[in-house]
Every structure is written in structure tokens, then in C-alpha cells.
Amino acid sequence: MKSNIGKLIKDSKFKRDYIQKEMGVSRNTISNWSQGKTNPSADQLFKLARLLEVKVDDLYEEED
């Protein structure tokens, strides 16, 4: 699976600091999610999708 979180955050109307604060996670955690090094929990996926105004499916895409 390829993470689209970094691109979605970059394209978002919110700054990373705001997203970090709203999600209750560290800057490092947001960075790791963006780079696909770690993945949000199921609860965090839904919260992040709501915050970014996207569907949970948009956060990742399948790779062949």
C-alpha cells in the first residue's frame, strides 16, 4: 500500500502544526505517516480523513 497522506496534508487548507494538534500526535508521527513508515490506527484513519475532508480510501492506494 502506498500512503497518500503526505500529499493530502500538503494539499490541505490546514498547516501540519494544526493537523498535528488536532490529531493529538507528534510532528514525527505525522512525518512517518506521510512517508509510509508507520500507519495510523483505524480510529486515527477516520479522524484524519474527516479532518482532511477526504474518504478513508483516499489516504492509501494499492500498489501492484
Rank of each mutant, 00 (worst) to 15 (best):
M1W: 14
K2V: 13
K2F: 14
K7N: 15
K7T: 15
K7Q: 15
L8V: 09
L8W: 08
L8M: 10
I9E: 08
I9V: 15
K10D: 14
K10M: 13
K10W: 15
K10V: 11
S12E: 11
S12Q: 12
S12P: 10
S12H: 07
K13W: 07
K13F: 13
K13L: 05
K13H: 14
F14E: 03
K15P: 00
K15S: 00
R16T: 11
D17P: 03
Y18L: 01
Y18E: 06
I19Y: 06
I19S: 01
I19D: 02
Q20E: 10
Q20N: 05
Q20T: 06
Q20G: 00
K21N: 03
K21Q: 05
E22R: 07
E22L: 03
G24P: 11
V25S: 12
V25E: 13
V25L: 08
R27I: 02
N28A: 05
N28W: 11
N28Q: 10
T29G: 08
T29Y: 12
I30P: 07
I30N: 12
S31L: 13
S31R: 08
S31G: 09
N32H: 14
Q35L: 09
Q35M: 15
G36P: 05
G36I: 05
G36C: 12
G36R: 09
G36S: 12
K37A: 07
K37P: 01
K37F: 11
K37T: 04
T38K: 04
T38Y: 15
N39Y: 13
N39V: 11
S41C: 00
S41E: 01
S41F: 01
A42H: 09
D43K: 05
D43L: 07
D43P: 00
Q44D: 09
Q44V: 03
Q44M: 05
Q44R: 07
L45W: 02
K47R: 05
L48G: 00
A49E: 00
R50S: 08
R50M: 07
R50V: 01
L51T: 01
L51A: 01
E53S: 10
V54N: 04
V54I: 06
V54K: 12
V56S: 15
V56K: 12
V56A: 15
D57N: 15
D57S: 12
L59R: 05
L59V: 03
L59K: 07
Y60M: 10
E61A: 07
E62F: 15
E62K: 13
E63T: 11
D64T: 12
D64G: 14
